[in-house]
């Protein structure tokens, strides 16, 4: 499903270049739950952004669903986001002006889902995450754990093939972290969603079935 070949990422620095990622070769199959680990500055987040089409690699080839991503137009890339990719962020990144319900609904709006289908899909998720009572609250009225639940719900509402999660429990205390990780595990096992997460925690990595370690931009 995901195939990286000799992916590098560098930024110009003075007369030379600073490499963040070097010659990364990585294959992720559908249904996998991969954890990317490594010390600070090892390039974890950059790798995740490249995987999630938020950043472009400087060199190498990236095939997403067998399509070479570098050659895609902005429009095509947006299409991929709409249909196949979900994001979960460390800082939740909910839209402050929208209620819980509306935040979850947003990807469906972009996908062009019909109104009735949107309603049933959002209701289903609210129900599943036990958040029906909170659907009209705004993000700042929720605890961090609850916000991240909304973040996960938003990431899966449009039935993506893959979820990219950037330290999804980094801002949560351990109880909430367990809740989120168990949720990921369930999504992976029951709903067959591919998950790629960046994490510092071996415990969290333990929920997945494969660990990719990075060091100074190299695949360790």
């Amino acid at each position: 499903m995901i195939k990286l070949e000799k992916i590098s990422k560098y930024y110009p620095a003075g007369f030379g270049k600073t490499y963040v990622l070097r010659h990364i070769d990585l294959h992720i199959k559908e249904g996998e739950f991969v954890s990317i680990m490594g010390p600070s500055g090892s390039g974890k987040s950059t790798l995740l952004h490249i995987l999630g089409l938020l950043e472009e690699p400087s060199e190498g080839e990236y095939l997403f669903l067998d399509e070479p991503v570098q050659k895609l137009s902005e429009k095509k890339r947006t299409e991929l986001h709409r249909h196949h990719i979900g994001f979960v962020f460390q800082a939740y990144h909910l839209i402050d002006e929208l209620t819980v319900y509306e935040n979850i609904e947003t990807p469906l709006l972009y996908k062009g889902t019909s109104s009735s289908e949107r309603k049933s899909r959002v209701a289903e998720l609210l129900d599943r995450f036990n958040m029906v009572a909170k659907k009209d609250l705004f993000p700042h009225q929720l605890s961090g754990g609850q916000q991240q639940l909304v973040g996960v719900a938003r990431a899966i509402v449009h039935n993506p093939k893959v979820i990219f999660a950037d330290e999804p429990t980094g801002n949560l205390h351990s109880e909430q972290a367990i809740e989120i990780m168990e949720l990921f595990q369930k999504l992976n096992q029951e709903d067959k969603v591919t998950i790629v997460q960046v994490t510092h925690s071996e415990t969290n990595a333990g929920y997945g079935n494969r660990i990719v370690r990075l060091k100074d931009g190299w695949l360790a």
């Binding site: 938020l54 902005e74 429009k75 947006t78 986001h81 994001f87 947003t106 990807p107 972009y110 938003r154």
Partner: peptide, 16 residues
């Protein structure tokens, strides 16, 4: 700006 980032990540095009 954050909202713009989220929207792009959740599938909004520049034009939208």
């Amino acid at each position: 700006a954050k909202e713009v980032g989220i929207r792009k990540a959740t599938g909004s095009s520049n034009r939208q």
